[in-house]
Design a protein around this nucleic acid. Structure first.
Lengths: 109, 109
DNA sequence: TTATTTAATCGTAATATTGCAATATATAAA
DNA sequence: TTTATATATTGCAATATTACGATTAAATAA
């Protein structure tokens, strides 16, 4: 099919998977790291910093924006992207609590 | 293209993205939660617990195994899957440190 | 106004993912 | 051995993703 059967899963499972999907590409990881590391918001320099074409970067930025992890504000002819701190923290918590479900792991295997 | 340009990114960026990709599907989230929540290792019940066909579950299990997050041992005719605690912790740390890069965020947007 | 600059969108090709029926494999039971 | 049970693999259809050239849109500069 190619289509995830979202109706089989809980809203939380779908939400977590969707968030992880937004992060699951090296270009988007790189973009987020660039945004985080530059004190001021990075704008179009991403295209030169990362070696991908401008439409490709723009597409990845759109996905990150849709996920809520970043937000962009128009600044003259360019656009200024930065982390959406609130959603970033929500995402962190969501992933954290997934990883910290305590497995009463008797290491049975 | 449909092919990620891995050569543009660092090994760490690719590794993190690859790990996140393994997690980025509700079925695989659900499978991991089932494995964690059952005190003993879960075996074949996943097919009935989650509503997907047996080959589909098998495929998702394979991906999780490839990512290193779970391991399976043959137990008679069935296979017993459980979390690979060591790799699980490595994954947790990798994702954690990604989220905890301190943004010197002057909240510029 | 007409460039120029910057980013978004459109269209499309190449590839990947998801899901499952059919089949294969492997172990256990009869 | 034959049969039953459990899981893996194969092959394929439907859909999604990635990447980019061409174009568009929007703001600024000349």
């Amino acid at each position: 099919m190619g289509l995830a059967k979202t109706e089989l899963f809980t809203t939380e499972q779908n939400k977590l998977a969707s968030l992880l999907k937004a992060l699951a590409h090296p270009a988007r990881i790189a973009i987020l790291q660039h945004i985080i590391q530059s004190n001021t918001c990075i704008c179009g320099d991403l295209v030169t910093e990362i070696g991908l074409a401008q439409p490709t970067i723009s597409q990845h930025l759109k996905e990150l924006k849709n996920s809520g992890l970043i937000k962009g504000t128009i600044e003259g002819t360019s656009v200024c992207y930065c982390i959406d701190e609130q959603n970033w923290n929500i995402a962190r918590e969501l992933i954290n609590s997934f990883f910290n479900q305590n497995s009463n792991s008797a290491d049975c295997c």
